[in-house]
Every structure is written in C-alpha cells, then in structure tokens.
Simulated scan of single mutants.
Amino acid sequence: MTKHFAPGEPRESDISLAQLRGDCARMAPHWVVPAADAPPPVSPSLIHGVVVPAASARLVDSMSEYGDWSVSGK
C-alpha cells in the first residue's frame, strides 16, 4: 500500500526528532488520564504460591541495598 503525499507535505522520514517531540508535547494535554485509586495493601498472609528459582534468589541476595550507589555515587 502506497501513501501519496501532497506537494510540500513532509514525508515521515523528513520529520525531525525535534518536530516530533514538539508535536507530542502539543498533544499531551489531550491525553489526560484520571487518577486511579491506589489498591489497598495485601496482607502477607494472603501471598502464597510464589516460587523463585534458586539462581534468582542468589542473584538478589548478592545485590547491595537499593539506592546505595545511585545518588551518592558509591
């Protein structure tokens, strides 16, 4: 299927990233999403049946605490 362009109409490949970002910024206010209520927390006693492979558990166990390097540069 071929798309025909009118004379002077930019082709998709002729649109710059800056133009695309500008178009998206102008459209963003039209895509307002209503705030959703946060689901209530689940009691730990209701969480069951989760299986974690041993290799994944070892990987997570060997990781440092979250965030200890991200801001402070440690």
Rank of each mutant, 00 (worst) to 15 (best):
G8P: 09
G8L: 12
K3F: 07
P34K: 10
H30A: 12
I15Q: 06
P7C: 10
K3Q: 13
A36H: 11
L20N: 07
Q19M: 12
S16D: 03
D14C: 04
W31C: 14
H4K: 13
L20M: 14
D14S: 01
D23V: 05
A35Y: 01
L20R: 13
P10T: 03
L17M: 12
V32E: 03
S16L: 11
G22I: 06
C24I: 15
P10N: 04
G22R: 11
R21W: 00
P7L: 13
R11F: 00
Q19V: 09
H30V: 00
P34S: 01
D14T: 03
Q19H: 05
G22N: 13
A35P: 06
M27Y: 08
H4P: 03
K3D: 08
A18D: 14
P10G: 02
E12F: 08
S13N: 10
Q19N: 05
Q19C: 03
L17F: 04
D23C: 01
A25E: 12
P7Q: 05
P34D: 07
C24Y: 03
A36W: 09
V33E: 00
A25G: 10
E9L: 05
P29C: 10
V33W: 04
R21N: 13
A18K: 08
V32R: 15
S16Y: 08
R21H: 07
V33C: 04
P34W: 00
E9W: 03
K3Y: 08
P34T: 09
L20V: 09
P10A: 02
R26L: 14
H30Y: 06
Q19S: 00
F5M: 05
R11Q: 03
R21D: 08
R26K: 15
P34A: 12
I15G: 06
G8H: 05
D14E: 15
L20S: 08
A35I: 14
K3V: 13
A6G: 06
R26I: 06
V32H: 10
S13Y: 07
S13F: 07
G22A: 15
A25D: 13
A18T: 14
G22H: 05
M27P: 00
P34R: 08
D14V: 00
G8M: 09
M27E: 09
H30L: 15
W31S: 09
W31N: 14
A35L: 15
H4V: 13
A28F: 01
H30G: 09
A28P: 02
V33Y: 05
A36D: 10
G22L: 07
A36K: 15
P10F: 05
L20K: 09
L17T: 12
Q19I: 07
G22F: 04
A6F: 10
H4T: 15
A18W: 06
L17S: 13
E12C: 07
P29I: 12
A25P: 01
A18H: 07
C24H: 07
L20T: 11
D14N: 01
R26E: 11
D14L: 04
F5W: 13
A36Y: 07
E9I: 05
D14G: 01
M27A: 15
F5P: 03
E9S: 05
S16K: 04
A36R: 15
V32Q: 14
I15L: 07
A18N: 08
R21P: 01
C24T: 12
M27R: 14
A35F: 10
H4D: 07
C24D: 04
A6N: 13
D23P: 00
L17I: 11
R21F: 02
C24P: 02
A36T: 12
F5R: 00
G8W: 07
